[in-house]
Design a protein around this nucleic acid. Structure first.
Lengths: 232, 232
DNA sequence: TTTATGTAAATGATATATCTTTAACCTCGG
DNA sequence: CCGAGGTTAAAGATATATCATTTACATAAA
């Protein structure tokens, strides 16, 4: 439990009404930016004490994250941050491409100039984050950029699945961020914005696919190449 | 709680070790075959009493299903079987196509003759279920048919998302089954098997897309056309 | 009659106690 | 020195009690 202090779990925005929600969001954020190393065991009592709650809501939060594939329940009933191998990583990237292209396509009819401006604002903030090398901020902004687009569509069926995939890639965020930076993702965002402005469905898909594949996709390959074999 | 008897929740296969798992699987199955009508409230205490457990594991099961988008948590904290509209239904079908094509493609390299034979066996059972008009059995067999294929791939990242989508479509299973029958889905399964035998990736995708679109897809459209507007 | 308001009942959320399972360790026999 | 078996400690699972919120209902005032 003493070991948990390195989780760096930020308390986000407004207070969450229920304890389980507070715990959930705290853990989720930590996972999303890669603050918890794959393989780490999430012990209920330890977390409960660390976060100042009783075991019940902590348990719920852990189960919720497990359902979202962000945590893995072992046969021993222990819950850990999943270890994934190169093959699974590859599939997660493919999933991102398929899901996010669909999400973008479906959002396109609902995209307004105001929304595009919003995305441009976020992109500008990202440029600043890049030059400051604020990795965690960059992660969050990048997600915000994509989220703003995908949630323009009032039928929210794709987004929950996208978030599940993001969560699964989260633990590798920090390892990859360094590498990703060198590929300079932000250019692709300009392409995305162009495609939106021109209502170009095909171009939008290509831009998003490129953003993903040449960003996390390539960085991930390097990360997984350097480590021989890692089994789940 | 007296009202719950119409859930028709089968106790499936081997006993589940933990209570929350037993409850989860029971509810999941009920949702999957459409035994619980959209809009139904899932009250913790009522379910606990009905299923002979304490509230705690029931709560967990409900939360888990909520995370999988199979149940909806309202602002009032009540949990219900979601009501979806035509737009959301359309997207769920699109998701099935995209996800299942990906799952099939990724599974193809791992497909053996034994596995194909297994699928043929299931398909034969489906033919019998069709002639007997055993709708629930047909649902289960159809899922089994697809599952056997997709899980040939050892990297299981796509399948959990597929199951989430299936669960979301579940509540409409029974309404659609009648209509689906008239379109006679089983033919598409033969196409799928052919494509597998010939290792034809493109053909496989087409067959799966056809199976989905001309099965549930078309049936769903009719269901949603007949009911004017239904909001979530 | 309608609406506001207060109270009681229902329901969800959480803390706690207890039970069960798993893991760690230690002794004893080979 | 190593492994089997048993004992203890740790961690998860569940039942229960209690707290907080929401809903339902009834009463009273406009």
């Amino acid at each position: 439990m003493d070991k948990l202090s390195h989780f760096e779990m930020p308390v986000i925005s407004g207070e969450y009404i229920t304890a389980h929600e507070a715990v959930y969001h705290r853990l989720r954020n930590a996972l999303m930016v890669g603050a918890i190393k794959p393989g780490t065991a999430m012990r209920i009592r330890a977390l409960a004490q660390y976060l100042g709650h009783s075991p019940t809501p902590v348990r719920e939060a852990l189960r919720r994250l497990s359902s979202e594939n962000a945590l893995q329940v072992l046969d021993n009933r222990r819950i850990i941050v999943p270890l994934i191998n190169a093959g699974q990583f590859e599939e997660l990237i493919l999933l991102r491409v398929k899901l996010e292209c669909l999400a973008a396509e479906r959002a396109l009819p609902y995209v307004s100039q105001i929304l595009i401006d919003h995305m441009i604002t976020i992109d500008t903030q990202m440029d600043r984050a890049v030059s400051k090398k604020s990795f965690d901020a960059l992660s969050v902004l990048n997600q915000e950029f994509h989220t703003v687009l995908y949630t323009a569509n009032p039928n929210q069926t794709v987004m929950p699945l996208v978030e599940s995939v993001w969560l699964q890639l989260g633990p590798f965020q920090r390892q990859m961020m360094n590498k990703t930076l060198s590929y300079y993702v932000v250019d692709h965002h300009k392409h995305i914005i162009n495609a939106l402005t021109q209502r170009d469905t095909k171009g939008l898909c290509n831009a998003i696919a490129a953003d993903i594949c040449e960003g996390v996709g390539r960085a991930g390959k390097e990360v997984f190449a350097s480590q021989s074999e890692q089994c789940a």
